[in-house]
């Protein structure tokens, strides 16, 4: 299980989709899980709305979205053998209210369902999925999801729940079966939050982060000769000739080169800060990917991640 999380707007959904694509390329059977159920993950994988039951989106990729009410029903069904109730809405609402306030249950629904999928076997007895990629809740909430089992263990000391929760807790803390991948941008707040989140996951949930994808990085540096070239292409004396040979206007090159140089410095500085504060590998994804959207963007990010190799 790979939980992908980070501050809102740092590209976690696209990274989750990219990982799903990479795994599918490698021939794996992938389950992509959209925790916040806003439909963004399915869109990034080129599909429409997905529900609570796995639905095929791409070759080898199935997706589910965790809606609270449905997860509640299935949770009861899975773990307590409670039949589906005909009129669940008011009950689910009350449960929702209680679950919000008590550490555990609501978050357990999320992590419990994912853990259930991890354990699921098909008819021939092999695991239903080779890999489960979770587009998890952003920063703060993901800690409560992943620490839910641990919190429940302190609350419930025996009975059905205790043993249920125990194996889930073991699962999420087992580095060989479950991991967290962060996302960030080369900007102040996202880097600060990624470092803090890494520390909180360690201290509150006992989970270590396996890496951080740093999106929208300008990786190529600009050399003095490139600045000279951009300026030389804009010399008045040669303007007509240059335009003709290049087939267009080179005037904006000066601005592009300038911008690239500033963004490159900023990217390098924040990558340094992130590496200094987070004891895990940092994988940069170039800014180029940001000019696309949806599946095309996820594919571009997948290519970038594959190239990095980490």
């Amino acid at each position: 299980m790979v939980f992908v999380t980070g501050k809102g707007g740092t590209g976690k959904t696209t990274v989750a989709a990219a990982l799903a694509l990479l795994a599918a390329r490698a021939g794996k059977r992938v389950l992509a899980v959209d925790v916040e159920a806003k439909g963004d993950l399915a869109a990034a994988l080129g599909g429409g709305a997905v529900r609570f039951t796995p639905q095929a989106l791409q070759r080898g990729i199935y997706a589910i979205a965790l809606q609270a009410e449905e997860s509640f029903q299935e949770y009861l069904g899975l773990y307590f053998k409670v039949p589906r109730l005909a009129r669940m809405t008011p009950l689910a609402r009350v449960f929702d209210f209680i679950a919000t306030g008590v550490p555990g249950p609501r978050d357990m629904l999320v992590v419990g369902k994912i853990a259930y999928e991890e354990r699921r076997r098909d008819k021939s007895g092999r695991p239903a999925w080779d890999i489960i990629i979770v587009d998890a809740a952003s920063s703060g909430h993901v800690v409560s999801h992943l620490a839910a089992a641990r919190a429940m263990l302190t609350l419930v000391r025996g009975g059905v729940i205790h043993s249920q929760v125990e194996w889930i807790d073991e699962l999420v803390r087992d580095d060989s079966r479950s991991t967290v991948l962060l996302t960030a941008l080369p900007e102040e707040m996202p880097v600060v939050e990624a470092i803090e989140l890494g520390a909180r996951l360690r201290s509150e949930a006992g989970i270590s982060v396996s890496g951080c994808v740093l999106n929208r990085m300008v990786l190529v540096s600009v050399s003095p000769s490139q600045r000279r070239l951009a300026a030389a292409l804009n010399r008045d004396s040669d303007a007509e000739e240059v335009r003709h040979r290049l087939g267009g206007d080179p005037a904006p090159f000066v601005e592009s080169v300038q911008l690239a140089s500033q963004l490159h410095d900023r990217s390098a500085e924040y990558a340094r800060q992130l590496r200094a504060g987070l004891p895990a590998p940092v994988v940069p994804v170039p800014l180029e990917t940001a000019s696309r959207s949806g599946l095309a963007m996820a594919r571009a990010v997948a290519d970038a991640l594959a190239k990095d190799g980490t």
Binding site: V220, V222, Q226, V242, R245, F253, S256, A260, A290, S291
Partner: peptide
């Protein structure tokens, strides 16, 4: 024509940098 010889990579690089920002600016 411009009186200075630039490394091929440097020339390609300037083109690519601009193409990236051009695509983003068009978005």
């Amino acid at each position: 024509h411009l009186g200075e010889r630039y490394a091929p990579d440097a020339v390609r690089g300037v083109g690519r940098i601009h193409l990236m920002f051009n695509a983003l600016a068009q978005r």
